[in-house]
Every structure is written in C-alpha cells, then in structure tokens.
C-alpha cells in the first residue's frame, strides 16, 4: 500500500522538468461552477412546475412546452459551465 502511494508523492515533490511540462495538460476541474450543473438535473424532475394545461403556447399545453423549454435550460447551463471552467489560454 505505502509503496503504491509513492509515485504520486514523488511526482509532486520531484523538481524534474516533467512536472512542469505535464502541468498545462492537466485540467483543473475542481471548480465550484460545476455545482450549477445540478440545476438542469433537478429542475426537469419536479412535476409541480410542468404538470398543467395552461397557459398554452401555440396550442401546446404547459406540460409539453415547458418540458421542451428545459432543454434550453440544460444547454445554457452546460455551455455556461464549460466556458467558465475552460482551461486558461484557450480563449
């Protein structure tokens, strides 16, 4: 066990050129922005929002147009989080 933890420690401590060259390709994904992604996971699963007929839009009962509208919610949230967590220097 202990011997197996060794590589990780070694890699962090070693002042070798490899450590600096590997750093830029490592994504930093511990961003708090990721929590935003729970919005499009939770909101579409609450029937109280969409389970009704009125108002109708273009003849669609609320049940249908609102659930289709959640697609926009999903797209905008994932796009936002992607932009906010993108690696620096790629913009």
């Amino acid at each position: 066990m202990a011997s197996y933890d060794f590589p990780e420690v070694c890699q962090m401590a070693a002042p070798e050129p490899e450590a600096t060259t590997t750093a830029p390709v490592r994504a930093k994904d511990h961003s708090p922005w990721n929590w935003l992604l729970f919005i499009p996971i939770v909101v579409p699963l609450i029937p109280a929002f969409f389970n009704g007929d009125s108002p109708r839009i273009f003849g669609f009962p609320r049940y249908y147009w609102l659930q289709l509208a959640w697609i926009l919610l999903g797209v905008s949230t994932t796009t936002l989080v992607y932009q906010l967590t993108k690696k620096r220097g790629e913009r």
Partner: peptide, 15 residues
C-alpha cells in the same frame, strides 16, 4: 414524454 426530461438530465451527468 419521460424521454424528454430523461435526455435533458443525462448530459449534465455525463459532463
């Protein structure tokens, strides 16, 4: 219509 929320929820999960 469950197929719609189902395929909305899956993408943030994959992400």
């Amino acid at each position: 219509f469950f197929a719609v929320p189902y395929t909305i929820v899956v993408y943030p999960l994959v992400f």
